[in-house]
Design a protein around this nucleic acid. Structure first.
Lengths: 157, 157
DNA sequence: CGCGCATTATAAGCATGCTTATGATGTATG
DNA sequence: CATACATCATAAGCATGCTTATAATGCGCG
């Protein structure tokens, strides 16, 4: 309130260029993520693994025994969508639903032995895609990118 | 070939940490892009604009008069998918198909006056989402992020 | 000119996701 | 204990995308 003719000089100077650069950044982010997904999907598809299927397996590999509702939340998918996917995966013997002994409403989801080869394949594909995406990046750049994306993510959670 | 006991020391030192950091980076990228999309989608949805609809409008705002096949390629969508989306948009009067006088097979797609308010809304929503995503970012950081993502995108094209 | 082939838009049928509704089961509160 | 409410999985119906197939039209080469 001291100087009434310079309310927020820094803001007005920065606002415009930031907004313009922000638009480009936003485009790059969408584009990069899209290409990364597509790159991986193509590889996975050659092994008969569609996105919706491998995402379930992938998350289960990190943590088994979750309830469907929990798993659906982590996958950011509607519970019913997961339920139908699990129907198919179970039919093929890749996962199994086990009754929760303490709560008869819910199932706990587990991977079967059958799923192990698929998971190995997925890990390999992820490495391939990442190494292609990050070709020519220094370790510092990768860390920088990770940090900035993490910050951005925090803002949106 | 000079020193046979140190084939590629730099590579073996870097490979492991890069791979680990790369995995985190990859996660952050997917996560950030997903949240950005979701953030925008929620806002857009409150205005009755679904993703598949506003994406078409958005690209047309940049360039009208394209053939369906061209537009589909830019949207990275199958031609048939775009065709059906256009059916609906045309039905609502937001876009129009004009016969190409030189090639009777194809249509040229144009926005109508009716679509202008929707586009204004979209521009506003994009600004809101971006400003939320980039809160606390310096201009330098935004530029850095844009540059790194662009580099990553180039690797995947 | 004419015939094969490419291109454009669309159709049919499937996969996947969502919203809303429902039945079974748990939990809390009077 | 009983009744109201919450939660879990699933069903029904719609939206959107894809693969493959098809009809109309353009194009190139003999």
């Amino acid at each position: 309130m001291g100087t009434d003719n310079q309310p927020e000089p820094a803001a007005s100077e920065l606002e415009q260029p930031v907004n313009e650069t922000a638009a480009k950044m936003s485009f790059e982010l969408h584009s990069a993520a899209h290409l990364l997904r597509r790159n991986f999907d193509r590889r996975a598809r050659a092994h008969g693994l569609s996105r919706s299927r491998w995402q379930v397996l992938w998350h289960l590999a990190r943590e088994q025994g979750q309830k469907q509702a929990e798993l659906a939340e982590r996958l950011d998918v509607a519970p019913i969508s997961l339920a139908r996917q699990l129907d198919k995966l179970q039919e093929e013997g890749l996962v199994e639903r086990r009754q929760d002994p303490a709560d008869r409403r819910c199932f706990r989801i587990f991977l079967t032995e059958t799923s192990k080869p698929a998971l190995e394949v997925l890990r390999g594909l992820a490495r391939e895609t990442r190494s292609q995406a990050l070709e020519g990046f220094s370790l510092v750049e990768v860390e920088q990118l990770q940090r900035l994306l993490g910050k951005l993510r925090e803002n949106l959670v």
